[in-house]
Computed example of a mutant assay.
Amino acid sequence: MTGSGGDARDRHVPVLRDRCVALLAPALAEPGAVVVDGTLGMGGHSEALLEACPQAVLVGIDRDPDALELAGRRLAPFGERVRLVHAVYDEMPAVLERLGLGPAQGVLLDLGVSSLQLDEAGRGFAYSVDAPLDMRMDQTTGPTAADVLNTYEVRDLARVIARYGEEKFARRIAENVVRARAVAPFETSARLVELIRDSIPAPARRTGGNPAKRTFQALRIEVNRELEVLERAVPAALDSLAVSGRVVVMAYHSLEDRIVKHALADGARSTTPPGLPVELPEHAPVLRLLTRGAETATESEIAANPRAASVRLRAAERVRAGRGGAPARGRTHTRGDAA
Score class of each variant (00 low, 15 high):
142 G>S: 03
142 G>L: 01
142 G>A: 02
143 P>M: 00
143 P>I: 02
143 P>K: 04
143 P>T: 04
144 T>Y: 06
144 T>F: 02
148 V>F: 13
150 N>I: 06
150 N>D: 06
151 T>G: 08
153 E>C: 03
154 V>Q: 14
154 V>S: 10
157 L>M: 07
157 L>N: 05
158 A>I: 13
159 R>G: 08
159 R>M: 07
159 R>I: 03
160 V>G: 04
161 I>D: 07
161 I>P: 02
162 A>M: 06
165 G>M: 09
166 E>G: 06
166 E>S: 07
167 E>R: 07
168 K>L: 00
171 R>K: 12
172 R>L: 01
174 A>K: 11
174 A>L: 09
175 E>V: 14
176 N>P: 03
176 N>A: 04
177 V>S: 10
178 V>T: 15
180 A>R: 14
182 A>R: 15
183 V>E: 15
186 F>Y: 07
189 S>V: 11
192 L>K: 10
193 V>A: 04
193 V>W: 01
193 V>R: 04
194 E>V: 12
195 L>T: 15
198 D>H: 11
199 S>C: 02
200 I>P: 01
200 I>H: 00
200 I>T: 03
202 A>E: 15
204 A>T: 15
204 A>M: 14
205 R>D: 13
207 T>L: 10
207 T>F: 10
210 N>Q: 12
210 N>T: 13
211 P>V: 07
217 Q>V: 13
222 E>I: 11
222 E>L: 04
224 N>E: 12
226 E>D: 07
226 E>G: 03
226 E>H: 02
229 V>W: 00
229 V>C: 00
230 L>N: 08
230 L>M: 10
231 E>H: 00
232 R>K: 14
232 R>H: 12
232 R>I: 12
232 R>M: 06
234 V>L: 14
237 A>G: 11
237 A>Y: 01
238 L>F: 03
241 L>A: 08
243 V>S: 05
243 V>I: 09
244 S>I: 03
247 V>K: 04
249 V>M: 01
251 A>R: 00
251 A>N: 00
254 S>P: 14
254 S>T: 13
254 S>M: 08
255 L>K: 11
255 L>I: 12
255 L>F: 05
257 D>A: 07
258 R>F: 05
258 R>V: 08
259 I>N: 13
263 A>M: 11
265 A>L: 15
268 A>H: 04
269 R>P: 04
270 S>M: 09
270 S>G: 12
273 P>G: 08
274 P>H: 09
275 G>M: 01
276 L>Q: 14
276 L>P: 12
277 P>M: 02
